[in-house]
Design a protein around this nucleic acid. Structure first.
Lengths: 256, 256
DNA sequence: GTGCATGTTTGATGTGGATCAAGTAGCAGC
DNA sequence: GCTGCTACTTGATCCACATCAAACATGCAC
């Protein structure tokens, strides 16, 4: 990777405050590579050789069992994935697939682990990143175990609205079938849940959703700060399951 | 806490290889306290003041939304909980409640974060612990999103069997209603799932389950190493969601 | 434009599992 | 023993959601 490309990695909270030396060690042997859409980068069960950093595009993280498949998270720039597997040098638990043409940095796992050993501050940053990811998964589990399809969809729309600056119009960031799987339902059920929301002032036109009555939507969603990320925010969502980092960052730095 | 009590914390992978100094810093101001059964230690949404280490007993980690409640994990000795919240100095996402009389060490969060800053090796141990917890949550999410009630129960029984040395008889470690919630179903459904397994050579008598035909059970469970922890193991399960650590440890040390 | 693939919606139907309700078993206290 | 409490089971019913199937849209290749 070129020097300027490596600097791009500083957009990650993980490398934000890293010393030049740590960044050099951590990214030794890293590659920057574009991938076409619909490309499988990693299959679950495979050893995790390198940490992936998504610089541009979209990557779906999914898993399968017994012939069926579910989307666990979607990475959006700039974010990384399979950090946990890298830290433990373990097999990946998810598969990764590009949804669109994506620019991805691949950092050898050894380099990351070496940097953790050498730089306590970096190891701390890794720990905070993983803590955020863990909490994202806890939120996701609560979402799935406690809420029904309508409530999950309603909260998802509120999350998008918050991420998009609280406008009345939100744009669905990926195909509805992907959203359906992410929300733990079938595409048919998502479609029906959308039309059920039609009576509550939600208009859907392709990927564009218009929210005419936020309080009606909230009445269905019953949002909860311990599950959702609807709070006013400064940064964009980077991935559905590791959005915790900025949430705590934000608290500390008062949205600056 | 007394010197000898602090040594007990070394049973945690987190402190296993910590220097005496790090252990001293990390546990500064820690308290050791017994709690009666059915005691709420922590309510979700509360600031996480200290890291809890369960030395004896059982603690249920649960969460609620809109009047309903679900068990997310159960901590068994020796394990810790709410590490992620401590690392980020964030509000707890789960409530914690003792299921039986429990002996618990409470370590101030500041001390843990200070130790992370001072000792890179300790920060690395925290990162590995969190990585294990994250992966446990990923497994749990896959379990819930991909499998039905029967498959979840069947795999749960296989997990207990593996943890108990692969004997034909396993003992349910907690009340069935707790297991039901942990597995994401109602007590009624758990009861019916158990009786459905009766035709497959599973006998249930109170907390004792006899597995007469493992392959029949496996045919229902379709166990998957990327979801379950059925593999032969040396250590006991410490908690349902952070059992990943020993799995990787074990790989490295060949079960020694 | 036509043709074809892919994604989405709509309709009909089925079912896994929740809910509601009653009954039973186990156990502590007396 | 009896009483009361709690956990669990069993039965009847219901409903949220999945499944199956067909129609409909959208976009692209040509």
């Amino acid at each position: 990777m070129r020097e300027t490309d490596i600097e791009a990695l500083r957009q990650l909270p993980l490398f934000e405050n890293a010393t030049a030396e740590t960044l050099r060690v951590a990214t030794a042997g890293a590659l920057l590579q574009p991938f076409p859409a619909e490309t499988t980068l990693l299959i679950e069960g495979a050893p995790s050789d390198c940490l992936y950093v998504l610089l541009d595009g979209q990557v779906e993280l999914h898993a399968s069992w017994n012939g069926s498949d579910t989307v666990l998270s979607i990475a959006r720039p700039v974010s990384m994935f399979i950090l946990a597997a890298i830290v433990l040098d373990a097999d990946a638990l998810m598969s990764a697939r590009t949804l669109e043409r994506s620019l991805i940095a691949m950092i050898p796992g050894d380099a990351v682990r070496t940097a953790m050993r050498l730089d306590p501050h970096f190891a701390g940053a890794v720990a905070r990143e993983l803590a955020g990811g863990y909490r994202g998964m806890v939120r996701s589990t609560k979402n799935i175990k406690l809420r029904n399809n309508s409530a999950r969809l309603a909260n998802y729309l509120l999350t998008l609205r918050a991420a998009g600056g609280f406008g009345a119009v939100v744009r669905l960031p990926y195909d509805k079938r992907v959203i359906a799987s992410l929300l733990g339902m079938t595409p048919e059920s998502l479609s029906r849940s959308f039309s059920a929301l039609g009576t509550q002032g939600i208009l859907v036109s392709g990927p564009v959703v218009t929210i005419r009555d936020v309080s009606a939507l909230e009445a269905i969603a019953k949002p909860d700060p311990l599950i959702d990320m609807h709070a006013p925010r400064c940064a964009e969502i980077r991935a559905d399951t590791d959005a915790e980092i900025w949430a705590s960052e934000q608290t500390r730095t008062s949205c600056r």
